[in-house]
Design a protein around this nucleic acid. Sequence first.
DNA 1: CGACGTGATGCGTCCAACGCATCCTTGACA
DNA 2: TGTCAAGGATGCGTTGGACGCATCACGTCG
Lengths: 309, 309
Amino acid sequence: MSIEREPAAPRLDVRDLRVVVALGRSGTTAAAAARLHLTQSAVSRALAVAEAHAGVPLFTRTARGLVPTSAGAVLLDAAPGMLADLSELERRVREPAPAPRRLRLVAECHMAYPWLARVVLRLRRTAPAVRLEMPAEHSLRAAEALAEGAIDAALLTSRPPPGFLSTEMMEDELMFLVASDHPLAAKGSLTPRDIASHELLVPTVRTEDARFLRFVFGSRRPRLRVERLAITEAIVELARAGLGIAVLSEWVAGPYLDAPEGGLTALRLRKGPLKRAWRLAHAPELDATAPLLADAIRAAQPRPRLSRG
Amino acid sequence: MSIEREPAAPRLDVRDLRVVVALGRSGTTAAAAARLHLTQSAVSRALAVAEAHAGVPLFTRTARGLVPTSAGAVLLDAAPGMLADLSELERRVREPAPAPRRLRLVAECHMAYPWLARVVLRLRRTAPAVRLEMPAEHSLRAAEALAEGAIDAALLTSRPPPGFLSTEMMEDELMFLVASDHPLAAKGSLTPRDIASHELLVPTVRTEDARFLRFVFGSRRPRLRVERLAITEAIVELARAGLGIAVLSEWVAGPYLDAPEGGLTALRLRKGPLKRAWRLAHAPELDATAPLLADAIRAAQPRPRLSRG
DNA sequence: CGACGTGATGCGTCCAACGCATCCTTGACA
DNA sequence: TGTCAAGGATGCGTTGGACGCATCACGTCG
């Protein structure tokens, strides 16, 4: 952030405007003081201050009261409008933000969508006026879409873009699936060497890579063989065919593990379960609606599949 | 003046707007403090005050800085414009009033016009850009015309309308003229009884009446016989014919007294000379030009005819 | 010429605004 | 997992601005 120069501070103040307006309407300091709930001396001093701020005399003193100068007339002409504008702005600031008509929500990872659809039903009860949309085409760059205003809220595993709020939502576990007859299946858990020496079958989203690598290997990051696939079924089927290790969220891995055809074994890292933390990021103008959305998401989220660990 | 209610005072202040804008652009209190030439603690407190004034939170505190709430976003959207408006207003107030293109001057009494015409020549030297006009049709109600904006300045013997400035200009003497063979001519001076028992030949302007009566008679005001005439020549000629006492300014009486045909005698009240005080009243927007006009008028004004008394 | 109403001002009080120093919380990184 | 850096909040003492009270100076008006 560069050291920009702030626009020159006005020397005139709201107090100056109010005093000038009251004096212009009253004609004497005593009458203006009554309007402003002050004393005559306070108004006299306040006028002196206002004139010092303006840099020119604003009223001509006569024995019968105060008569605006041409500078004072300019101020008297504009000041009531400015004060009204400020009051109107204050009213707008104070009034609660209107509930949005639509709310575009996107998750950073396709693997959330199977259960995310249920959020629509939940939110329909708590916020009937809001129509929840999920333009999934923004999933691969959810944070950028949020920053650009293309969507209103995003479920992220990465950090929200600068200037956006996010709330802690939940965790899911990334599971490692191999064919049940794969040599690794019998080991029970995976070592970093196992990860490095087999093909990894992962989704196309890359936001997780850094965390994944650090978690598994620490700072020494080997070259991996990675196959990125856009379709979850493809990842699963390649793994079932013994061609590598699928890395999938528990949210989508679960059904395949339970499926009657079987042939898949879930593994964890020996170091422990690999979890992802999810945040709900939202645009500032949604800060009233966001808690409702967060509640709906928490309620719709599936229970963790694996209780062990 | 009725006790009108002043428009509700905005609780937000220029300081609030400046702090919010700086925070919105900086994102942290420390950076905003640098912009505002304050310390971090001052900005933090100022934000708290601004939020108290606004009645709603304006920024959400995060570990990485401040993110505007929807209310804060409303304020951030409008505040820079308001500050710019205020600075612009301040600039307009500070800059000198432009010299008027034309200046409409009127005297409350037709008897000033013979020498008033010379003011045009004087002012042409000191203020060449100003075109001086004298729409004499407003003479009979000069003060009202000034108040209504039909003229810009007026030479008045009465008080200026409320809200208008006036500066002391000069005096002239009202002289009493009778035919030289009139019985009063031999008396040398006039008593109140003389005034009450003869026909008075006066101009149509009535603004002088109250002062005249008070000066001559005090609080006991008798019924007078008064003939009002619009034309100065008519007043003079009726007086010369012995039909009454003409009451005329020294400005117009002088030439008739000096005229070769003669036949007129000037009288004063026994109480002393009857003087009229003249003021130059002008609209507030002329307060820069008015001194020039006043100088021109003083320079053009004829020297008092009678040095005695 | 005196009474009144005007704005200006000296004085004392009080509180808002500020700076300094410090504390608490929260991510980031090793 | 522990440490550190960076963020905002806050207690404390100081200062200056805003105010009320009382009074002054001046012009107007009766």
